[in-house]
């Protein structure tokens, strides 16, 4: 692996993995904690329409994906908030419509569509330098927004009604959060692809959650974990010559299982963990 780093594409791949880890580490925590996994999946899949549009009009497919994911984030957010359509129904519909549009656009696009597969399943080994620049910019937008609105997003995730009572603009913040999810999807598409995005949005955050009760620490941990999954997943896929995106995710899945097993063991061995209401207060009882 280390000698592979002498190649540009490998260095780009590692950089892309780290940049993706930043976005999914931070935003993934909100996705998991606020339980918007399904809507995130919908945003990711709807962005396929943008990939198709990009091919059709000769635009960068990743730009098309950004456009479509943002539009679908706002669309799903508004429809689920303001209409009486059940949330999962609305998401399911827009999810499929986005993909259907992508298929039609690609069918209409002139000639052969070369790397369609890499948008669906990711190909971290073909990330060009221009995409890295885009990923850096999107990461910067995500980090700055979350730093500025950290306390509001925490309240939004914890108790929306109370947020509204104390005067937090909850609906606008919710739409903004969905837009950040859309940007994260764009960052992740190159690494794991539209279909597998949801795994990187959930696994690092879910593992981090087993290890800490502090949201900031959770974000840092999830970022580190995401970067580790990306790096070692890349390594394994290089050694065994298998798909990189899928390897990254299977590695994450294995880590998830291990962390579950570990916290299960901890629960069996330590008694106060079974009686969570006591917390650390009554250790003397043991």
């Amino acid at each position: 692996m280390l000698d592979a780093l002498q190649y540009d594409f490998m260095r780009n791949a590692v950089a892309a993995g780290v940049l993706a880890a930043v976005a999914c580490g931070i935003i993934g925590v909100y996705v998991v904690v606020k339980r918007v996994v399904f809507i995130s999946g919908g945003i990711a899949h709807a962005s396929f329409g943008g990939v198709g549009l990009g091919y059709l009009v000769g635009l960068s497919p990743i730009l098309g994906a950004a456009l479509f994911s943002l539009a679908s984030a706002l669309g799903m957010g508004l429809v689920t908030r303001r209409t009486r359509l059940p949330e999962d129904t609305a998401i399911g519909i827009m999810w499929a419509i986005g993909m259907a549009m992508g298929i039609i656009f690609i069918g209409l696009a002139p000639g052969y569509v070369p790397d369609l597969f890499s948008y669906l399943f990711g190909n971290i080994l073909t990330v060009p330098f221009s995409d890295l620049v885009l990923m850096i910019a999107l990461d910067a937008v995500i980090v700055v927004t979350v730093v500025l609105l950290y306390k509001e997003f925490l309240a939004l995730s914890f108790d929306e009604e109370f947020g509204a009572v104390v005067g937090v603009p909850v609906e606008r913040l919710y739409l903004l959060l969905l837009c950040l999810i859309a940007l994260t999807v764009v960052v992740l598409i190159r690494v794991v692809g539209i279909i597998l995005v949801i795994a990187l949005l959930t696994i690092p955050a879910a593992v981090a959650r087993q290890l800490t009760h502090d949201m900031k620490k959770m974000m840092v941990l999830a970022t580190v974990l995401g970067a580790l999954f990306a790096f070692f997943g890349l390594w394994l896929s290089y050694e065994f010559d298998v798909a990189s995106g899928a390897t990254i995710i299977l590695l994450g899945g294995a880590a998830m299982l291990a962390s579950f097993g570990f916290s299960g063991l901890r629960r069996v061995s330590g008694r106060e963990a079974i009686v969570p209401a006591d917390g650390g207060q009554r250790q003397d009882r043991r």
Partner: peptide, 13 residues
Amino acid sequence: PASVWDVVLMGRL
């Protein structure tokens, strides 16, 4: 992932 302190501060938002 929120402490008692985090929650009480929300009142000041």
